[in-house]
Nucleic acid binder design. Structure first.
Length: 736
DNA sequence: GCCCCTCTGATTTTT
DNA sequence: TCAGAGGGGC
């Protein structure tokens, strides 16, 4: 097999063929990063005769891992046997083989954020902490932050002068995790490092095993990930990291941008390759992106360019309210649709989820199909988590969090009193909750009786396990539990959907079983850890026929023909919390860069002069990022042909005069935008107008009271219902 | 033990 | 605005 390098440009080719020694590939947005990584792997195998299992490739997301696997397979023509994992997946896999060296059982549980918080909740109670000061959320944040920033989180907490209570809570948290034979996400990384440090023989084994290491999205690595890579690669130094410092947007999650900025210091003699040719966007879009990002200090110098010249001008729109902004976006989408664009070629990107609400309302009123990404994903649904918790408890009987979740689901009449007694007993006897339930001699008769049915069910399940196929086993377990009946009774939510989800999970289990081919592995453990690390199952499906709505963070790595970047307002984007912190502001700017570079052909930047935030009217100024784009975006009085096109849109204006673009952060000082004079199709209601409401449907206006933002209109809807609505907020469109 | 109502607080979330 | 949590009443 030969690898075709002719399709690569010069720097790409260099990145593929420099196989020995440390290599930093600075891959700008849309510069063919994945192609380089996968071709490099294929090249190592085919041209350098490296055995696939000597190659380790690490990514951040399951999606990226999957995509790379598929592409490597395509290039090499077989399932190459390359170790291709997410960081966490790799660690979970390694620990499932080696963790007994650290005194854990190989069937450890992986605690996700919910599990973590539930555990922390009990710790707050047990330590009698004031939960106003030390809330679950706060503590979980502090703990994770410590684990992300340091290999010795206790020391980190001490050095950052955390109060005594935090230190106590943290050590109890770690103690309870250990007792539950559980690791949180951060532990997966830290325990791997601990293993390597404690057992040089194990480290030596894997060092020798992984002779070529590749890391994707290197700008997003945290301290622990850096150490893992460093430990494995330090000796042979065949380490290729690919990333873009300008797209580092997870600093708040512990990603340390210094890892990529100082790669050459960490690995002296490292080669640096810059991929600056962009294959995605037009020149106009790249110009705006470059203008913005140049305001950041301390970045690796690079500038994207493209052969795609003569692109559409970028449009800036100001709405008076978020409603107008949304209406404008919908108008543009319908317009694009009339010109032959598919709905799924549009993306609406925003800084916060809260912004999706109004967009959804207006999209609905226009009957535009859309999909919002980033809601509760499949594996996070309560019914799915319930079932998984039963399985988790069977796999790891020490898993107190799983036990606590399901002990009263379905309801078994077990409340605080019974649980308190159980906890006390468990503490006394130094056993897990489940262990006490299985051996309840010391519990009061009354409590014992309450737990007995549960104990019987689980004992029967233990008995059953291994005698049937995986999914049949689970289905039988659920029958015994009476889970379906519980879903039917529990009328909180749609029974059909929830029961369907459970079925889907069972289907997924049987699929997993049939593709499970690790003779030494434990099917249940392997399934549970895969699922635990696969919480974000909502991948963007490219041909879904829907307009795509998501946060800027979620948009990373994606591309769309037309992108609307909305809420381009000071205080929203950049967020108010980032405004006065130069580092945070730079991260917001990178986020803006990411957003802009998602667009292939058309980019719309929109903002509202005022919007409802936390139930309050908030007036706002255009985002400073808009001015930073300077004349890369359309200015008032501009003469170009788009001006004519703009007239079709309801309100257009962008008033800030652009000052020369300085380097470094700037504070917006422009004048307040004047109120646009164009006809406002939203506020100008009169009696007899026919309207459509997003929820109530069609109706006729009976009466209009008052003027301006407080205007109230009375509408009689077709279904006979009459409503008084605040015109400004009601999701209304006029029917001609 | 469970349900309902009031209070509170609020970015972003690859694993 | 609105979701989630905790307190109080049944």
């Amino acid at each position: 097999m030969e690898i075709d390098l002719t399709k690569l440009n010069q720097p790409q080719r260099e990145a593929v063929t420099c196989t020995e020694g440390p290599l930093l590939v600075l891959a700008g947005a849309g510069s063919g990063k994945t192609r380089v990584l996968t071709t490099r792997i294929a090249y190592l195998i085919a041209e350098k005769s490296v055995a696939p299992y000597h190659i380790l490739a690490l990514t951040f997301t399951n999606k990226a891992a999957k995509e790379m696997k598929e592409r490597v397979q395509k290039l090499t023509g077989e399932d190459a046997g390359v170790w291709l994992f997410t960081f966490h997946g790799f660690c979970a896999r390694l620990l499932s083989m080696e963790i007994d060296a650290l005194g854990y059982d190989k069937r450890f549980s992986i605690y996700d954020e919910d599990d973590q918080q539930s555990l922390i909740g009990h710790i707050i109670k047990d330590l009698n902490l004031n939960d106003k000061v030390f809330s679950k959320r706060t503590l979980a944040g502090i703990f994770s932050d410590a684990k992300n920033h340091s290999l010795r989180p206790e020391e980190f907490l001490r050095q950052s002068y955390q109060p005594r209570q935090v230190l106590e809570a943290f050590s109890l948290y770690q103690k309870r995790l250990k007792e539950a034979n559980a690791l949180d996400f951060d532990d997966l990384l830290l325990k791997t490092i601990e293993l390597f440090e404690k057992r040089p023989d194990v480290l030596a084994k894997y060092r020798d095993h992984f002779r070529y290491i590749l890391v994707d999205e290197y700008q997003d690595t945290n301290m622990a990930q850096y150490h893992i890579v460093s430990l494995l690669a330090r000796e042979h130094r065949n380490l290729c990291v690919v990333g873009d410092d300008d797209q580092s947007i997870y600093g708040w999650r512990g990603a340390d941008i210094r890892n990529i900025l100082e790669f050459e210091k960490d690995f002296p003699g490292a080669r640096v390759v810059r991929l600056e040719q962009n294959y995605r966007s037009t020149d106009k879009i790249l110009e705006a992106a470059n203008r913005v990002i140049e305001n950041n200090r301390g970045r690796k110098d690079k500038r994207l360019w493209t052969e795609k010249t003569d692109g559409f001008p970028i449009t800036v729109y100001e709405g008076r309210t978020e409603r107008e902004e949304a209406v404008y976006i919908c108008d543009r989408i319908l317009n694009g649709r009339r010109m032959g664009s598919r709905y799924d070629s549009f993306a609406i990107l925003y800084r916060t989820h809260a912004q999706s609400r109004i967009l959804e309302m207006i999209l609905q009123s226009y009957s535009i199909p859309y999909k919002v990404y980033g809601g509760t994903s499949f594996f996070n649904r309560s019914e799915v988590k319930d079932v998984l918790s039963y399985l988790r408890l069977l796999s790891n009987p020490n898993d107190d969090v799983a036990f606590t979740r399901i002990i009263n689901v379905p309801r078994r009449g077990i409340g605080n009193v019974a649980m308190d007694e159980l906890r006390a007993e468990a503490q006394q006897r130094e056993l897990s909750l489940f262990a006490v339930v299985l051996d309840p001699q010391t519990l009061s008769l009354r409590t014992r009786a309450k737990f007995a049915p549960f104990a019987h069910i689980m004992e029967a399940a233990f008995e059953d396990y291994g005698k049937k196929t995986f999914s049949v086993f689970a289905a039988d377990l659920l029958k015994r539990i009476g889970y379906d009946a519980y879903l039917k009774e529990d009328k909180k939510e749609n029974y059909e959907v929830r029961s369907e989800n459970v079925k889907e999970l069972l289907g997924y289990m049987s699929e997993f079983e049939s593709s499970f081919d690790d003779p030494d592995g434990d099917l249940l453990q392997s399934f549970l850890s895969t699922v635990a690390l696969f919480m974000n199952a909502d991948n963007v499906d490219e041909q879904n026929g829907c307009v795509n709505l998501m946060t800027l963070h979620a948009a990373k790595g994606l591309e769309f023909d037309t992108v609307f970047l909305c809420g381009m307002e000071d205080g929203l984007f950049p967020s108010a919390q980032s405004k006065f912190d130069p580092e945070k502001l730079e991260e917001e700017r990178r986020l803006c860069y990411v957003g802009v570079t998602r667009a292939q052909e058309k980019l719309f930047l929109t903002y509202a002069g005022s919007r409802m935030l936390y139930g309050q009217f908030t007036a706002s100024q255009p985002s400073q990022f808009l001015r930073e784009m300077g004349d890369a975006i359309r200015m008032p009085g501009g003469s170009s042909r788009e001006q004519a096109a703009q007239k079709a849109a309801p309100v257009e204006s962008f008033h800030a005069q652009t000052p020369p673009v300085h380097t470094g952060p700037q504070v917006f000082m422009g004048t307040k935008p004047a109120t646009p004079k164009t006809v406002d199709k939203v506020l100008d209601w009169k009696d007899g107008d026919r309207v459509r409401h997003a929820i109530f449907g069609e109706g006729v206006i009976e009466n209009v009271e008052g003027k301006g933002p407080s205007q109230i209109i009375r509408v009689r809807f077709k279904n006979g219902v009459e409503k008084r609505l605040t015109a400004l907020y009601a999701p209304l469109t006029r029917l001609e």
